[in-house]
Nucleic acid binder design. Structure first.
Lengths: 127, 127
DNA sequence: CCAAGTGTATTGTTGTATTGATACACATGG
DNA sequence: CCATGTGTATCAATACAACAATACACTTGG
């Protein structure tokens, strides 16, 4: 598995380990990471993105305790077969809900017309 | 000015002082806080939200160095008359742009249909 | 004038978060 | 068997955020 599946911004105020966990949660929920699929090793990810291996390990550990990943000793991490794999659109939507709530809050503080916001987001989604 | 204009979540991982500054930036850009209007005193805000006055002072100080607020010695902080007051919809939109970009990224990782996301956001905006 | 209200500088403390360097235990494959 | 590849436990070093308790300079209203 290629280390490039993960997008990381080391300079972001968002902690690196949380960027990784959040991303894994979404990619696994959508099935972009299939059940049983092997993840890139901590050293691969760390080398590719020029970050510390322990930071990746911490993210993997959290993802495991959350039931997203399973550890295969000596081999690596694989996507867990638990209650997680490839969820329905409804379940995936709930992962986006908090972020959307915050979007709405900021839009209202900015007094932006709903049309304007929706049109812009539609454009961004059309990639 | 009432201390309740500011919404603060002390338990959020987002630092309190940044919650305040970000919020001020939006409220001022929209004109919900009019140019020249007085802000609630640091002690009022701190008392109302049960946080430390110096945390509020720090936020006000940052907002001032950003040109959002002006300090009137002995009186308090007022909304600056600078290049900031009540911006156009286009300018306000740019304050939301980074957040919308992130929304689009997460939606794509979740493989959510654009329609679903847009419909949900439209509902959240219709308050 | 002076009490009461502004913001702020200062110093110290506490708790936590984040990252880093190193060494270790384990499993695999030739 | 052993080099190589896993993940990770451990300890350390910072940095950050918030709080606490003062003291200070300033303005206003009675």
């Amino acid at each position: 598995m290629d280390a490039s599946i993960l997008t990381i911004h080391p300079a972001s105020p968002e902690p690196i380990y949380r960027q990784i966990v959040d991303q894994l949660r979404r990619l696994i929920a959508a099935g972009q990471l299939a059940v049983g699929e092997r993840l890139p090793s901590v050293r691969d990810v760390a080398g590719f993105h020029a970050i510390n291996p322990m930071t990746v390990s911490r993210a993997y550990g959290l993802a495991e305790s959350e039931g997203l990943l399973e550890r295969q000793r000596g081999k690596g991490m694989v996507v867990a077969s638990g209650p997680t794999g490839s969820q329905s659109a409804r379940e995936r939507m709930q992962l986006l809900e908090p972020h959307l709530k915050e979007t709405a809050r900021q839009a209202q503080e900015l007094e932006l017309p709903a049309d304007t916001v929706l049109r812009r987001l539609k454009h961004l989604l059309g990639n």
